[in-house]
């Protein structure tokens, strides 16, 4: 399969940015809803919805 990486790269970069921002935030935060290590796993392994889930329900308001 002949993928045009120039086109796919922006998507990958976006997902990467989301993941990094979420990871930095989870590590920096004093407290999360639920165990921290679980959120790290969620952010790393559930595709781009992982960081979103963290931002919506993981962070303490």
């Amino acid at each position: 399969m002949d993928l045009n990486w120039a086109l796919i790269a922006p998507v990958i970069i976006l997902e990467f940015i989301l993941m990094i921002v979420a990871l930095v935030d989870v590590i920096k935060s004093d407290d999360t809803n639920g165990p921290k290590w679980l959120w790290v796993l969620v952010i790393l392994f559930i595709g781009f919805l992982g960081p979103i889930l963290y931002f919506v329900i993981g962070r303490k308001r």
Binding site: V11, L18, D25, I52
Partner: peptide, 30 residues
């Protein structure tokens, strides 16, 4: 709350993925 980051990101990812998957669908099936 990072909403200004993640909300546009989600919509952009969804928006970009649709034409990409449509274009590569035959290859993917093959």
């Amino acid at each position: 709350n990072y909403k200004w980051l993640w909300m546009p990101s989600v919509f952009l990812i969804l928006g970009l993925m649709q034409p990409i998957t449509t274009y590569y669908l035959p290859d993917i099936l093959a």
